[in-house]
Design a protein around this nucleic acid. Structure first.
Lengths: 134, 134
DNA sequence: GGAAAGTGTAACCAGTATGGTTACATTCAC
DNA sequence: GTGAATGTAACCATACTGGTTACACTTTCC
């Protein structure tokens, strides 16, 4: 089951970019995304930890971009909200079998190649690109 | 939760390649992968549908590669067992919001870029490469 | 100082994907 | 026909996801 967290994060950042420095609350974002404010706050936390946004608590608070849209790469967003890898290794292949003993290192290499390709792709797309296509 | 089906499939194909044309049964494969034969048969079905292997039923049956290892690309394997995309779109953004109305088309474009990168990567790795690294 | 507005986070639930298991119909070689 | 093997349905435990409620904490404003 692929999660929609990256989609929600990009949607959120697009809203923040359009707000132009004005802090946006989780309720306003949740209305546009059409979900619960807590779900948004969870994503907001992850993005704040990655220094992509700044969040102010208390009355009049909310989230705003930490940088200009052209300086925010989707790769940072992806890594912030979507830790895992594209596929999982199977847990315990048989050590006594020559294939089972060594398959994990080969699969790790394949995983690395895929992750690298995804990283290269997302490193070249910025929030500015997203805004221009909206 | 990323599935381990791709990992199981590659492991299985490596075993078939090493068997050198001799059909391998799901029980033998399951022993090396360390799982249940039914799990293997499910993967075998997907690989047979993709014409990567041939499966014979009945006594003395089993699976064998349909082509030489250098002619089997991991991309075929990936597509056969791992249908989905890297991330999911969020179900119903608000149509009345200018961002919510258009975000899906942008996210689809991003999805396409990622999928393309993954495809390019896996199209260049063959089962032969896997065998050489074992 | 207190009220109001907001975030941060824990706890719980429903829905769903995954892998493991059993069971059984079907197919094929001998 | 018998035995060995696949194909597939059914069911279960586990885990992840998103939705929801609840509440502590922080900040602004009066």
């Amino acid at each position: 089951m692929a999660s929609s967290r990256f989609a929600v994060a990009v949607h959120t950042l697009a809203l923040l970019a359009r707000a132009g420095g004005q802090p946006l609350g989780s309720c306003a974002i949740a209305r546009s995304v059409n979900t619960n404010p807590v779900v948004i706050r969870r994503t907001l936390c992850a993005l704040a930890r990655a220094r992509v946004i700044r969040v102010r608590r208390g009355a009049g608070g909310g989230a705003e971009l930490a940088r200009a849209p052209h300086a925010i790469r989707l790769l940072e967003v992806y890594l912030a909200v979507n830790g895992g890898s594209t596929f999982a290794l199977h847990p315990a292949p048989r050590r006594r079998c020559p294939v089972g003993r060594n398959i994990h290192s080969v699969l790790c290499w394949v995983q690395g190649e895929i992750d690298e390709a995804v990283r290269r792709t997302l490193a070249e797309i910025t929030l500015q690109d997203v805004l221009e296509r909206l």
